[in-house]
């Protein structure tokens, strides 16, 4: 459980939907706003969105699951996105990712059991001329290396 996230309640969800509804093609903006609030798309939001936009629940579900960005459950407290596209591979991104997972004690992409860190792949951050690239909690890193990322995470997790 992420202590820093509010528990989804229908009143807040309705307010978030209402704030974006007036747009042409409002569904993606609504989903982005929900994810910004809860770090995932709460199951309980689906019928409320469906009702507001006159869609079926299945249609909304279909959209949520189509896009890589939308999560079914919150990520870990810290999120590392490692680029695994071609330009980063040419600069050793695969080894970098393997080493990072190893340093963190993860078997593959995913979240540590204590919920502290999620590592996920991303396909290109537009930093292909300073590869390999990564993003740690929204901070971009060029010429990234795994010990530096691991150190950054350890620092972020350390009690203040």
């Amino acid at each position: 459980m992420r202590q820093d996230l509010a528990t989804p309640d229908s009143e807040t969800i309705r307010a978030i939907i209402a704030a974006e509804r007036h747009r042409e093609g409002p569904l993606l903006p609504i989903l982005h706003a929900l994810q910004a609030e809860y770090d995932h798309i709460p199951e309980s939001a689906l019928p409320l969105i469906a009702e507001a936009l006159a869609l079926t629940r299945a249609e909304v579900h279909g959209v949520v699951t189509f896009y890589h960005d939308f999560r079914e459950a919150p990520a870990g407290r810290h999120v590392v996105k490692v680029c695994r596209a071609e330009a980063c591979q040419s600069m050793g991104a695969n080894d970098m990712a393997a080493r990072l997972l190893d340093l963190l004690g993860l078997d593959g992409y995913g979240t540590l059991p204590d919920g502290s860190v999620t590592v996920e792949p991303v396909y290109c951050l537009g930093l292909c001329a300073c590869a390999p690239a990564a993003m740690v909690d929204g901070t971009l890193l060029g010429r990234a290396d795994s010990p530096a990322i691991a150190a950054k995470l350890a620092k972020a997790e350390a009690p203040a």
């Binding site: 993606l28 189509f66 939308f70 991303v122």
Partner: peptide
């Protein structure tokens, strides 16, 4: 601006 959602 409309923001995409991570689909190539």
């Amino acid at each position: 601006v409309r923001v995409g959602a991570g689909a190539y």
